[in-house]
Write a protein that binds this DNA or RNA. Structure first.
Lengths: 133, 133
DNA sequence: CTATTAGTAGTAATGATTCTTGTTAAGGAG
DNA sequence: CTCCTTAACAAGAATCATTACTACTAATAG
Protein backbone atom coordinates (compact mmCIF):
# COMPACT_ATOMS: atom_id res chain seq x y z
CA UNK A 1 0.00 0.00 0.00
CA UNK A 2 2.16 2.69 -1.33
CA UNK A 3 0.88 6.17 -0.98
CA UNK A 4 2.38 7.78 -4.04
CA UNK A 5 2.77 11.23 -2.64
CA UNK A 6 3.08 14.23 -4.89
CA UNK A 7 6.81 14.17 -4.82
CA UNK A 8 7.18 10.48 -5.48
CA UNK A 9 4.71 10.79 -8.31
CA UNK A 10 6.58 13.76 -9.71
CA UNK A 11 9.83 11.81 -9.76
CA UNK A 12 8.14 8.91 -11.51
CA UNK A 13 6.36 11.17 -13.97
CA UNK A 14 9.56 12.94 -14.81
CA UNK A 15 11.26 9.63 -15.51
CA UNK A 16 8.37 8.59 -17.71
CA UNK A 17 8.30 11.78 -19.70
CA UNK A 18 11.97 12.42 -20.23
CA UNK A 19 14.30 10.52 -22.51
CA UNK A 20 17.33 11.90 -20.70
CA UNK A 21 18.06 9.08 -18.27
CA UNK A 22 18.85 11.58 -15.53
CA UNK A 23 20.86 11.13 -12.37
CA UNK A 24 19.47 11.68 -8.88
CA UNK A 25 20.85 15.17 -8.89
CA UNK A 26 19.49 15.88 -12.36
CA UNK A 27 16.02 14.92 -11.20
CA UNK A 28 16.45 17.08 -8.13
CA UNK A 29 17.46 20.07 -10.22
CA UNK A 30 14.46 19.69 -12.49
CA UNK A 31 11.89 19.25 -9.74
CA UNK A 32 13.25 21.72 -7.22
CA UNK A 33 11.66 24.75 -8.95
CA UNK A 34 8.25 23.05 -8.87
CA UNK A 35 8.62 21.69 -5.32
CA UNK A 36 10.87 24.16 -3.57
CA UNK A 37 10.95 22.12 -0.40
CA UNK A 38 12.08 18.97 -2.19
CA UNK A 39 15.21 17.50 -0.69
CA UNK A 40 17.91 15.52 -2.41
CA UNK A 41 17.53 12.76 0.15
CA UNK A 42 13.90 12.34 -0.86
CA UNK A 43 14.94 11.89 -4.47
CA UNK A 44 17.49 9.26 -3.50
CA UNK A 45 15.08 7.43 -1.25
CA UNK A 46 12.34 7.31 -3.84
CA UNK A 47 14.68 6.25 -6.63
CA UNK A 48 15.88 3.44 -4.45
CA UNK A 49 12.39 2.29 -3.52
CA UNK A 50 11.08 2.55 -7.05
CA UNK A 51 14.10 0.62 -8.25
CA UNK A 52 13.52 -2.17 -5.75
CA UNK A 53 9.91 -2.33 -6.87
CA UNK A 54 10.98 -2.70 -10.45
CA UNK A 55 8.98 0.42 -11.26
CA UNK A 56 12.06 2.12 -12.64
CA UNK A 57 15.44 0.86 -13.79
CA UNK A 58 19.05 1.80 -13.39
CA UNK A 59 20.68 2.24 -16.77
CA UNK A 60 24.34 2.68 -15.96
CA UNK A 61 26.83 4.55 -13.85
CA UNK A 62 28.36 7.34 -15.91
CA UNK A 63 31.05 9.54 -14.38
CA UNK A 64 30.31 8.12 -10.95
CA UNK A 65 26.67 9.07 -11.16
CA UNK A 66 23.93 6.49 -11.39
CA UNK A 67 21.47 7.12 -14.20
CA UNK A 68 17.81 6.10 -14.15
CA UNK A 69 15.16 5.17 -16.64
CA UNK A 70 11.39 5.13 -16.40
CA UNK A 71 11.29 2.40 -19.00
CA UNK A 72 11.75 -1.05 -17.56
CA UNK A 73 11.34 -3.07 -20.73
CA UNK A 74 14.67 -4.32 -21.99
CA UNK A 75 16.13 -1.97 -24.54
CA UNK A 76 19.50 -0.91 -25.81
CA UNK A 77 21.37 2.29 -24.94
CA UNK A 78 24.10 4.36 -26.50
CA UNK A 79 26.24 6.29 -24.03
CA UNK A 80 28.48 9.21 -24.93
CA UNK A 81 31.77 8.88 -23.12
CA UNK A 82 32.39 12.63 -23.34
CA UNK A 83 29.17 14.32 -22.23
CA UNK A 84 27.42 11.36 -20.66
CA UNK A 85 24.36 11.59 -22.89
CA UNK A 86 22.33 8.38 -23.03
CA UNK A 87 19.93 7.62 -25.86
CA UNK A 88 17.58 4.70 -26.43
CA UNK A 89 18.23 2.46 -29.40
CA UNK A 90 14.97 0.68 -29.82
CA UNK A 91 15.67 -0.92 -33.13
CA UNK A 92 18.82 -2.64 -31.95
CA UNK A 93 17.94 -5.84 -30.17
CA UNK A 94 19.88 -8.91 -29.25
CA UNK A 95 19.09 -12.04 -31.25
CA UNK A 96 17.07 -14.30 -28.96
CA UNK A 97 19.36 -17.15 -29.86
CA UNK A 98 22.28 -15.37 -28.15
CA UNK A 99 20.34 -15.23 -24.89
CA UNK A 100 19.76 -18.95 -24.98
CA UNK A 101 23.37 -19.68 -25.80
CA UNK A 102 24.52 -17.35 -23.03
CA UNK A 103 22.38 -19.21 -20.52
CA UNK A 104 23.81 -22.55 -21.59
CA UNK A 105 27.40 -21.38 -21.76
CA UNK A 106 27.34 -19.80 -18.31
CA UNK A 107 24.93 -22.08 -16.43
CA UNK A 108 23.17 -18.92 -15.28
CA UNK A 109 19.42 -18.39 -15.28
CA UNK A 110 19.60 -15.21 -17.26
CA UNK A 111 17.27 -12.50 -16.00
CA UNK A 112 18.07 -9.96 -18.65
CA UNK A 113 20.76 -8.84 -21.02
CA UNK A 114 22.34 -5.45 -20.95
CA UNK A 115 23.48 -4.13 -24.30
CA UNK A 116 25.16 -0.77 -24.39
CA UNK A 117 27.17 1.02 -27.02
CA UNK A 118 29.75 3.45 -25.79
CA UNK A 119 31.11 6.12 -28.11
CA UNK A 120 31.07 9.82 -28.94
CA UNK A 121 27.80 11.48 -29.84
CA UNK A 122 27.32 13.74 -32.85
CA UNK A 123 27.47 16.94 -30.83
CA UNK A 124 30.66 16.07 -29.03
CA UNK A 125 32.18 15.02 -32.34
CA UNK A 126 31.39 18.43 -33.82
CA UNK A 127 32.71 20.18 -30.75
CA UNK A 128 35.91 18.23 -31.12
CA UNK A 129 36.33 19.10 -34.78
CA UNK A 130 35.77 22.79 -34.17
CA UNK A 131 38.13 22.71 -31.25
CA UNK A 132 40.74 21.02 -33.42
CA UNK A 133 40.88 23.76 -36.08
CA UNK B 1 58.77 5.63 -18.28
CA UNK B 2 56.78 3.52 -15.93
CA UNK B 3 58.74 1.66 -13.37
CA UNK B 4 56.54 -1.39 -12.79
CA UNK B 5 57.39 -1.86 -9.19
CA UNK B 6 56.85 -5.19 -7.53
CA UNK B 7 53.48 -4.20 -6.21
CA UNK B 8 52.17 -2.79 -9.43
CA UNK B 9 53.39 -5.87 -11.23
CA UNK B 10 51.74 -8.10 -8.66
CA UNK B 11 48.40 -6.36 -9.15
CA UNK B 12 48.68 -6.73 -12.90
CA UNK B 13 49.80 -10.35 -12.69
CA UNK B 14 46.93 -11.19 -10.42
CA UNK B 15 44.48 -9.66 -12.85
CA UNK B 16 46.06 -11.63 -15.69
CA UNK B 17 45.99 -14.93 -13.88
CA UNK B 18 42.59 -14.82 -12.26
CA UNK B 19 39.23 -15.16 -13.96
CA UNK B 20 37.49 -13.65 -10.97
CA UNK B 21 37.20 -10.03 -12.03
CA UNK B 22 38.03 -8.85 -8.52
CA UNK B 23 37.32 -5.54 -6.86
CA UNK B 24 40.02 -3.29 -5.46
CA UNK B 25 39.45 -4.74 -2.05
CA UNK B 26 39.50 -8.30 -3.39
CA UNK B 27 42.89 -7.67 -4.93
CA UNK B 28 44.09 -6.14 -1.71
CA UNK B 29 42.96 -9.16 0.29
CA UNK B 30 44.73 -11.56 -2.05
CA UNK B 31 48.00 -9.67 -2.18
CA UNK B 32 48.23 -8.52 1.41
CA UNK B 33 49.60 -11.88 2.67
CA UNK B 34 52.37 -11.76 0.06
CA UNK B 35 53.13 -8.06 0.52
CA UNK B 36 52.24 -7.36 4.13
CA UNK B 37 52.98 -3.68 3.79
CA UNK B 38 50.69 -3.24 0.82
CA UNK B 39 48.15 -0.51 1.34
CA UNK B 40 44.68 -0.28 -0.10
CA UNK B 41 45.44 3.14 -1.50
CA UNK B 42 48.23 1.66 -3.56
CA UNK B 43 45.84 -0.85 -5.07
CA UNK B 44 43.37 1.88 -5.95
CA UNK B 45 46.04 4.14 -7.37
CA UNK B 46 47.52 1.44 -9.56
CA UNK B 47 44.14 0.23 -10.76
CA UNK B 48 43.33 3.77 -11.76
CA UNK B 49 46.61 4.29 -13.57
CA UNK B 50 46.50 0.93 -15.30
CA UNK B 51 42.94 1.65 -16.34
CA UNK B 52 43.86 5.02 -17.82
CA UNK B 53 46.66 3.31 -19.73
CA UNK B 54 44.26 0.81 -21.14
CA UNK B 55 46.35 -1.94 -19.60
CA UNK B 56 43.38 -3.23 -17.65
CA UNK B 57 39.65 -2.71 -17.98
CA UNK B 58 36.71 -2.01 -15.73
CA UNK B 59 34.03 -4.64 -16.18
CA UNK B 60 31.13 -3.34 -14.16
CA UNK B 61 30.09 -1.94 -10.83
CA UNK B 62 28.46 -4.71 -8.80
CA UNK B 63 27.06 -3.93 -5.35
CA UNK B 64 28.72 -0.55 -5.43
CA UNK B 65 32.13 -2.07 -6.02
CA UNK B 66 34.01 -1.60 -9.26
CA UNK B 67 35.28 -4.84 -10.76
CA UNK B 68 38.40 -5.14 -12.89
CA UNK B 69 39.64 -7.35 -15.67
CA UNK B 70 43.14 -8.04 -16.96
CA UNK B 71 41.66 -8.77 -20.36
CA UNK B 72 41.10 -5.69 -22.47
CA UNK B 73 39.83 -7.35 -25.62
CA UNK B 74 36.08 -6.95 -25.98
CA UNK B 75 34.28 -9.95 -24.56
CA UNK B 76 30.97 -10.76 -22.98
CA UNK B 77 30.28 -11.26 -19.28
CA UNK B 78 27.64 -12.97 -17.19
CA UNK B 79 27.06 -11.41 -13.78
CA UNK B 80 25.29 -13.12 -10.90
CA UNK B 81 22.94 -10.68 -9.24
CA UNK B 82 23.07 -12.62 -5.97
CA UNK B 83 26.73 -13.31 -5.26
CA UNK B 84 28.30 -10.91 -7.76
CA UNK B 85 30.27 -13.61 -9.56
CA UNK B 86 31.39 -12.57 -13.04
CA UNK B 87 32.33 -15.07 -15.73
CA UNK B 88 33.62 -14.61 -19.25
CA UNK B 89 31.46 -15.77 -22.12
CA UNK B 90 33.87 -15.93 -24.99
CA UNK B 91 31.67 -17.69 -27.46
CA UNK B 92 28.91 -15.13 -27.20
CA UNK B 93 29.68 -12.20 -29.48
CA UNK B 94 27.63 -9.43 -30.92
CA UNK B 95 26.87 -9.67 -34.65
CA UNK B 96 29.04 -7.07 -36.37
CA UNK B 97 26.02 -5.88 -38.25
CA UNK B 98 24.42 -4.72 -34.99
CA UNK B 99 27.39 -2.46 -34.28
CA UNK B 100 27.02 -0.78 -37.65
CA UNK B 101 23.30 -0.33 -37.22
CA UNK B 102 23.79 1.06 -33.71
CA UNK B 103 26.21 3.66 -35.04
CA UNK B 104 23.78 4.74 -37.71
CA UNK B 105 20.75 4.75 -35.46
CA UNK B 106 22.41 6.83 -32.76
CA UNK B 107 24.74 9.07 -34.76
CA UNK B 108 27.48 8.07 -32.32
CA UNK B 109 30.98 7.02 -33.30
CA UNK B 110 30.84 3.77 -31.41
CA UNK B 111 34.03 2.96 -29.55
CA UNK B 112 32.92 -0.38 -28.21
CA UNK B 113 29.89 -2.37 -27.24
CA UNK B 114 29.25 -3.76 -23.79
CA UNK B 115 27.27 -6.95 -23.63
CA UNK B 116 26.43 -8.36 -20.24
CA UNK B 117 24.01 -11.00 -19.10
CA UNK B 118 22.62 -10.61 -15.62
CA UNK B 119 21.08 -13.58 -13.85
CA UNK B 120 21.56 -16.15 -11.12
CA UNK B 121 24.52 -18.50 -11.27
CA UNK B 122 24.26 -22.25 -10.78
CA UNK B 123 25.54 -22.17 -7.24
CA UNK B 124 23.17 -19.49 -6.06
CA UNK B 125 20.34 -21.34 -7.76
CA UNK B 126 21.19 -24.48 -5.81
CA UNK B 127 21.49 -22.52 -2.58
CA UNK B 128 18.06 -21.10 -3.24
CA UNK B 129 16.49 -24.49 -3.86
CA UNK B 130 17.99 -25.96 -0.72
CA UNK B 131 16.92 -22.97 1.27
CA UNK B 132 13.43 -23.31 -0.11
CA UNK B 133 12.88 -26.89 1.11
C1' DC C 1 77.92 8.57 -4.58
C1' DT C 2 74.42 11.88 -5.24
C1' DA C 3 70.54 14.08 -7.39
C1' DT C 4 66.35 12.99 -9.28
C1' DT C 5 62.17 10.95 -9.64
C1' DA C 6 58.84 6.87 -9.24
C1' DG C 7 56.57 4.39 -5.90
C1' DT C 8 54.64 3.81 -1.49
C1' DA C 9 52.20 3.63 3.35
C1' DG C 10 49.32 5.87 6.05
C1' DT C 11 45.98 8.89 6.52
C1' DA C 12 42.96 12.75 5.50
C1' DA C 13 39.57 14.27 2.30
C1' DT C 14 35.82 13.75 -1.01
C1' DG C 15 31.46 12.94 -2.75
C1' DA C 16 27.60 10.09 -3.74
C1' DT C 17 24.40 7.70 -1.24
C1' DT C 18 21.93 6.06 2.97
C1' DC C 19 20.22 6.51 7.56
C1' DT C 20 18.20 9.00 11.60
C1' DT C 21 15.41 12.26 13.89
C1' DG C 22 11.80 15.16 14.51
C1' DT C 23 7.86 16.96 12.04
C1' DT C 24 3.87 17.24 9.01
C1' DA C 25 0.00 15.61 6.86
C1' DA C 26 -3.09 11.96 4.91
C1' DG C 27 -6.66 8.33 5.78
C1' DG C 28 -9.51 5.71 8.47
C1' DA C 29 -12.43 4.59 12.68
C1' DG C 30 -15.46 6.22 15.67
C1' DC D 1 -15.07 16.58 13.12
C1' DT D 2 -11.26 14.45 16.29
C1' DC D 3 -8.05 10.99 17.53
C1' DC D 4 -4.88 7.61 16.02
C1' DT D 5 -1.83 5.30 13.00
C1' DT D 6 1.34 5.53 9.51
C1' DA D 7 3.49 7.42 5.05
C1' DA D 8 6.24 10.94 3.64
C1' DC D 9 9.23 14.47 4.29
C1' DA D 10 13.47 17.99 5.26
C1' DA D 11 17.57 18.48 7.28
C1' DG D 12 21.52 16.96 8.55
C1' DA D 13 24.60 13.24 10.34
C1' DA D 14 26.74 9.01 9.05
C1' DT D 15 28.69 5.66 5.85
C1' DC D 16 31.49 3.79 2.50
C1' DA D 17 34.09 3.32 -1.75
C1' DT D 18 37.35 5.92 -3.81
C1' DT D 19 40.89 9.63 -4.38
C1' DA D 20 44.27 13.03 -2.88
C1' DC D 21 47.93 14.34 0.03
C1' DT D 22 52.24 14.03 2.82
C1' DA D 23 56.40 12.37 4.20
C1' DC D 24 59.33 8.57 3.38
C1' DT D 25 61.93 4.93 0.67
C1' DA D 26 64.05 2.91 -3.25
C1' DA D 27 65.50 2.66 -7.92
C1' DT D 28 67.91 4.88 -11.76
C1' DA D 29 70.92 8.15 -14.25
C1' DG D 30 74.82 10.72 -14.46
Amino acid sequence: MKRYSKKRQAILDLLHETTEHPSAEGIYRQLKPVYPDLSLGTVYRNLKELGEDGTIASVAVVNDRERFDGRTDPHTHAICSECGKIVDLDGITLPAELLLRAGEASDFSITYAKLQFVGVCGECRKARENGGI
